[in-house]
Structures are given as C-alpha cells and as structure tokens.
Design a protein around this nucleic acid. Structure first.
Lengths: 261, 261
DNA sequence: CAATCTTGTTTCTCTATGCGGAACAACGCG
DNA sequence: CGCGTTGTTCCGCATAGAGAAACAAGATTG
C-alpha cells in the first residue's frame, strides 16, 4: 500500500538485499532470517528469498546446522578486485610495511567518501595492545585525524556541509564547535598533519598526513592509530614526520608533483 | 515470455545484480552499461536500473566523466568483515608474515569452496618478479598445489565428483588422467604436502600443505607461489617443510590436535 | 563540420514477479 | 510433552521490474 514513492530508477528488491548484506558486522558476523527481517522491517518470507538468492551466488553462506548466515567468499573476491585496483592501495602498501617495521604501530590508508573517512588499507602492528579497526569502516570527518587532515584541504563548501550535518560528540574531547574546527583546520594546513586525541574513542589517539593525486586534490590520508598510553605528544610528533614523508611519496606515485610554480 | 522456469524461491532481479557485480575483474575493473548488458544478455534499461541501485548503496561507483562503473567501497567493507571473521585468516596472518620475512616468497591461505580453491589471504614478497594472484580468485582443484593437497584429504565422493566434472587441461603439464590424479593424491597423503609445476599456468610453481580444523577435516591449505626459475625442486622441498609446520600450527589454533593415542 | 555510430538515460506498457500474511514444519526449552 | 521459538512453503493480488523503443549526448568518421 503505502510504498515509498516508487522510484522508477531503482530496484526495491535489490535494495533490500544490499541492506541485508550491510546488516553483517564484525561484531555480528552471523545472522538468522528473523534477525535480519527485524532489522530491515521486512517480512520473513522476503528475507528468506533474498538470502537464498545471495547464498546461491556465494555472497552469503548458510550454516547447515544453525540455518544462520555469514558472508560468503564472493564478497571477498570483489574486495580483492577493489584492492588491486585502487591505486592508492597499490602504491601505498610497501610504504606502510616499512612504517610498521620501523615503528611497530598500526597504519591505515583512508579515503574520503560520502562525508566520511573510509579505511581502504590496514597494516597491523604486533603489539599485544591493539586498536580494533576494520577495512571499509566509515568514520566521521571531524573527530579522526585522517578525517580532519582530508577535510582541511577540501573546498570550503565541503567543510560547510560537514558542519551543517552536525559535529556529533563522540567523546568529551570531540570538537563540536564550528569555529574551533575551522581554526584547527587552518592550523592543520600549516602543519601538514593532524592529530586526534581521544576524539572518536576514549583512549585512542591517531596521527594523519594527507595524500594527493595528480589533480593536486587531497583524496586520502595515511594514518597511524594507537592507545593513548603509547601515543605521547612527542611520539605523535615523530610519527607525524614519517607519515608526512610517506604521504608525499604516495602522492608522488599517484602523479602529484610538488609546486613547480 | 520464455522466462527461465520462474523459481519461486529466488529473486531474478537480485540475481541479475549479483551477476553484474561478478562481471568486474582485476583485468576489467571498469565497465559501462552496454558492456555489462552484453555480458549478461540483459537489456540496457535493466542493467541501468541495477547499476543505479548498486551505486546508491555504494557497492559500485560511477565515474562522472566516463559514466562507467567501478566497484565501490561497500564491498571492501564486507570483505573486511569476512576477513576478520574467517578464523583461518585471523590465525594464519602472523605465521604467513614470518614466512614471507624468512623466504621472501608470496604465500596464500586457500580454502575449499564449491569444488575450487579460493585464496582468502595473501602476503606478497618483495621480489620484482611476482606472480599475479588475487583474493577470492577461484582455481581448479586438480592443477594447483593447494587444490590437490586439499582434495587429497577429502571424501572419495568429492574426488569422484571432481573427476566427473572433468580434469580440464590448463597447460601441457596439467594432470588430466583420473588414475594419475588418484595415484598422486595418495602420494600427497604420504608426503603431507603437494607441488604444482606449471600445471595451472606455464612457468608458475607452487607448494602447499593442508590445514585442518577441530573436526580433523582438511578445510584449507597454506601455499607458496613463485616463478619456475626461483622454485627449483630443492627449494620447493625446503619450502614444503616450513609450510607443513606452519599449517600444523594454524590447524592447532583452529582446535585440531594431533593424534592422541 | 555535418552525418553517423555508439554511448547512456528515460518513457511506456504489460505481465510475471516478488511482496506480506498465514499456514506449516522443525527444533530447543522449560 | 506442549509451547515458543525458529526457518520454510504456499497463495493470491498489486505492483515492481522486464524489454522495446524513443531520446539525448558524446564520440568518430570522412
């Protein structure tokens, strides 16, 4: 009856399926029909059909015992394709490795997408104390070092839009005031790197430096994350220095050339 | 009109979309509407709707210039979830790292899926001469070292089925005779590891050892791949020794305990 | 620089498709 | 051993989605 304004250009059944896929998270990697149906507000029969189809194509895997579902290997394959074709990943991988070998801290490559930073590559340190992050995770721009450093170099319309959407407080440290943010972004442009100190999650610090492509636009960032205890101000400064040089190298490989005048 | 026997339990439109996603490969990461429509034998309008929906949900990304499509970051996110939840990956990662550090050769974790080996994890060596492989890629069982070593420990009905499906020759070296294969599999069970010498692709050799889970079933393999020039018989033997010990360690972490009595 | 392919996008129309509700089956729990 | 769960199947009706074809917007051509 009251269907949502039937958009002639999209497929509602496909949307259902994609939403179903997005229900899976690292915390909840296994779901049953009813759970998914509830999350999406769809009938069990519909979800059942969707999942059967997804399973047939290997996008989802059904446990014969519990009749619950997990993501299937087909999505891994797609993920692999993306990885091998995102230039920023290809070019950055080895440099990240060197970084981890030298500092033994976790590093990421992040890119801007849809007013969020998305981690597209990750290299873990061997420390017993690790920060749980995962590929593809979207984080807000205003409370992460990668987000801020990317945002700092965006067009002011982007910055305005981020502010308009609201600077949601995630911890007591989150920057929630537009003016403070603008001021900080200007400082970041001067420094060439950004910090985040417990602004997204309590006790998690990070440092990030901007990556540019051949159009000179900042499209992503290299960022190191770790626990506050290890990430002292001095250490973060020293990490920043290396991250900046790595980010320049990656930018270079993406066709960016420093000011020629 | 002559629709395909409308299966009441699956969604044809969703299938179309999933097939569309599967059109993307590392070799062809960017596709236009018409290309996809041709590949799938669907009308342009249908594909257009599918792609628009996929794009809206971030599963695909549309280049504003060329109006062609690439995979989007949503699939990366799903891939990340799978990676962090496939026990075999989690447990294997560090061991693979050690292997790469020691031998500087590319290693994979592969699992059995749908009568094929699928690479679920990969660590590249730094050699300039590399073998192009990618995550999620399915390869036949009879002509890869990982495939053979997994197959060797499967129920004989699985082996029969593989043979029934045909031992497709990929190179002059591919084993195409059922008896030869059976004999080799029995040898592999004795050795505890398998080789492949240019059986899948000319000039590409590999070595693999089996990984078991707590049910004692062989569910995957650790495998090293490289160019024939570097992979001499002696070297492969030595790699095999290490791979076997790594595979045992992974199996152990998956709850497998060696024969008790 | 027009003529002509070849893209992608939109419109339209008709019917098979996919929706939800309800009946059914298969567990697991007390 | 029944009751509250699950997941699965059936069914009937409205509508979503398939393709043909018109349309628009670049490319490519000579």
């Amino acid at each position: 009856m009251e269907r949502q304004a039937a958009d002639y250009r999209t497929l509602s059944s496909l949307k259902n399926a994609l939403h179903a896929l997005k229900c899976f998270t690292p915390e909840e990697p296994e779901l049953g029909i009813t759970q998914i149906a509830d999350k999406l507000g769809l009938s069990k029969s519909t979800v059942h059909r969707v999942m059967t189809t997804l399973a047939e194509e290997g996008f989802v895997r059904r446990d014969e015992q519990t009749h619950r579902y997990r993501l299937g290997l087909s999505v891994l394959s797609l993920g692999g394709i993306i990885m091998s074709n995102l230039e920023i990943c290809r070019e950055g991988q080895h440099l990240l490795e060197e970084f981890v070998n030298r500092f033994d801290e976790t590093v990421h490559l992040a890119v801007l997408e849809d007013y969020a930073t998305v981690y597209v590559s990750k290299l873990e340190c061997k420390h017993p104390v690790q920060i749980a992050t995962h590929l593809g995770r979207k984080n807000p721009l205003h409370c992460t070092s990668s987000g801020k450093v990317i945002l700092a170099y965006q067009d002011s319309t982007v910055i305005d839009e981020v502010i308009r959407r609201g600077l949601r407080p995630m911890t007591p440290n989150t920057i929630t005031h537009p003016d403070t943010l603008r001021q900080l972004l200007s400082q970041i442009r001067k420094d060439g790197y950004a910090f985040s100190q417990s602004e997204l999650r309590e006790g998690v610090h990070s440092v990030a430096a901007p990556v540019r492509d051949y159009t000179r636009q900042v499209i992503g960032a290299v960022t190191a994350v770790g626990p506050a205890a290890r990430f002292t101000p001095e250490k973060m400064k020293s990490l920043a220095k290396t991250l900046v040089s790595i980010s320049k190298e990656i930018s270079h490989r993406l066709g960016y050339y420093e000011r020629v005048r």
